[in-house]
Nucleic acid binder design. Structure first.
Lengths: 211, 211
DNA sequence: TAGATTGTTAATCGATTAACAATC
DNA sequence: TAGATTGTTAATCGATTAACAATC
C-alpha cells in the first residue's frame, strides 16, 4: 500500500467532487483535462486542484494536463473504492428504503448484503433483489457469514446506540450513522455521522449569516 | 441582531452535538451542567466546549457551570432555529418520502409547506398531513404564495441543476441538495450539499486509513 | 525554443490546543 | 477563604494561498 499523507476532510470532499467531474468527462469521451478546467467546473482555483492532487502521486504533463481516466482511477484508489466491501443496513423505515434503493453502493465498491429490522411486519419483505429483510436477532450470524465490514444505522435515535453495540460485537469495522446522536464505539471502529437533522440546522445557520 | 463571529464548520457541528446533549439533559430534569460533563458526553476536552461557547455570549458561572435551558436557547438562537421558516421538497421518491416523513423539520424551525414531483402518478399523493404532492409546474406560484425560503432537491442528478434554477427563479434563499453533483447558483444563495454517495466514499477512505 | 501547465516549496491564514487570569 | 470552574489570551498546529521552479 502506498504511503499517502492523510487527506484533510475538506480535501476529501473536494476530491469526491473532482471524481464526479472526471467521470462526467469520461462519459463525454474527453481524454485529457487541465487543473484550470477542473477548477472552472468545481468553482475552485486551479492551484487548489493541483495541491489536492499533489501527494496522490499525480502524473500530469505540463501543457497537456491530466489523463482523465488515470486521474479518476487515482482518486478511486485513494478512496479504496474498487475494493469489494460488504455492508448491512439496520432499520428498514423510510430512510432505510431510500438507501437500499439508491445506486450509491456499487459506485463506492459496496454490496448491500443484508438488511435488518425488528418489526415482524417488515421482516421478510424484499429489500432489494435477492435480499430479504431479516430479524435483528440474526445480525451476529449474518455479519459473520457474509463477512460484512460496515453497518448502516437507520433506526430511531433511541435504538441507535444499542444497534451500534450489536454491530461492533458482530465485528464490523465501520458504522455509517444516520441517527441524530453521537454513537460511542471503540477507537478502532470508524464512525461516520450523517445526521440529516444536523444538515438542516447548518443550513439554517448559514441562511442567518447570509441575511 | 448580535454581532457573533462566524463559526467554523467544525464548530457548528460540535455545537449541534452539544445541543443534542443539552436537550437530553433537559428531558432528564437537569438544570445545570459543566463543560467537563458536556465534554465527557461528547467525547471532547472541556476546554474545547468552552472555546466553542465563547463568543456566543455564554454566561456560565464558575463552580456552577451553565444553565442547561439558557445554553440550549443560546445555541438555538445562534442557529436561528426558532424563527419560523418555510421549505419545499422537490422529488417525491424514496429519499423525498423519508425526508417528508421525518421529524427534523419542526426541531430546526422549518415547516415543509409543499412537495413537488413531475411524475403524474405521484402528483396528488398525500405527502404529509394537509400537503399533497403538486406538479413541478406550480413551483413558481407556490413558492411565492407560501413564502418559501428553502428548497430541498431530492431529484436524480440529471434533473438537479434544472430544479435548482427553478427554485432560484422562484425566489428561494437557500438550497439543500441531495443530488451527487455540485449545483451552481448565484452567490447570494446558500447551497448546502448533502450527497449521500459522498458520505459513503468518505467512509471507504477512512476505513482504508484505519487498516 | 518558447510558453503553457504541472510539481513543490514558502508565506499566510485560521483553527485548535495550552496556559492562565477572573470569579463565583 | 479556598478551590472549582469559567472566560480569554497566547502558542501551536494544520490547511490554504501564493510564489516559483521544473518540464513537456
Amino acid at each position: 500500500m502506498s504511503n499517502l499523507k492523510k487527506l484533510s476532510r475538506a480535501s476529501v470532499v473536494r476530491l469526491e467532487l473532482y471524481l464526479e467531474v472526471l467521470e462526467q468527462m469520461q462519459k463525454e469521451g474527453r481524454t485529457h483535462v487541465t487543473s484550470a478546467e477542473i477548477g472552472e467546473y468545481a468553482g475552485l482555483a486551479p492551484v487548489k486542484i493541483r495541491q489536492d492532487l499533489f501527494g496522490l502521486g499525480t502524473d500530469g504533463k505540463p501543457r497537456v494536463g491530466y489523463d482523465v481516466s488515470d486521474l479518476a482511477q487515482l482518486i478511486r484508489n485513494a478512496f479504496d473504492m474498487d475494493r469489494a466491501k460488504s455492508a448491512c443496513l439496520v432499520g428498514f423505515g423510510n430512510l432505510g428504503r431510500a438507501l437500499a434503493g439508491s445506486n450509491i453502493w456499487s459506485k463506492a465498491g459496496f454490496r448491500l448484503a443484508a438488511v435488518f429490522d425488528r418489526d415482524p411486519n417488515v421482516i421478510g419483505l424484499e429489500a432489494l433483489e435477492d435480499v430479504q429483510v431479516k430479524s435483528i436477532n440474526e445480525i451476529f450470524g449474518v455479519i459473520k457469514s457474509e463477512e460484512i465490514e460496515t453497518g448502516i444505522i437507520t433506526v430511531p435515535a433511541s435504538a441507535a446506540q444499542d444497534t451500534a453495540n450489536h454491530l461492533v460485537n458482530a465485528g464490523v469495522r465501520s458504522i455509517w450513522n444516520f441517527a441524530p446522536i453521537k454513537i460511542s464505539a471503540p477507537e478502532n471502529i470508524v464512525v461516520e455521522n450523517q445526521s440529516l437533522a444536523w444538515g438542516l440546522i447548518t443550513l439554517s445557520y448559514r441562511m442567518k449569516l447570509a441575511m
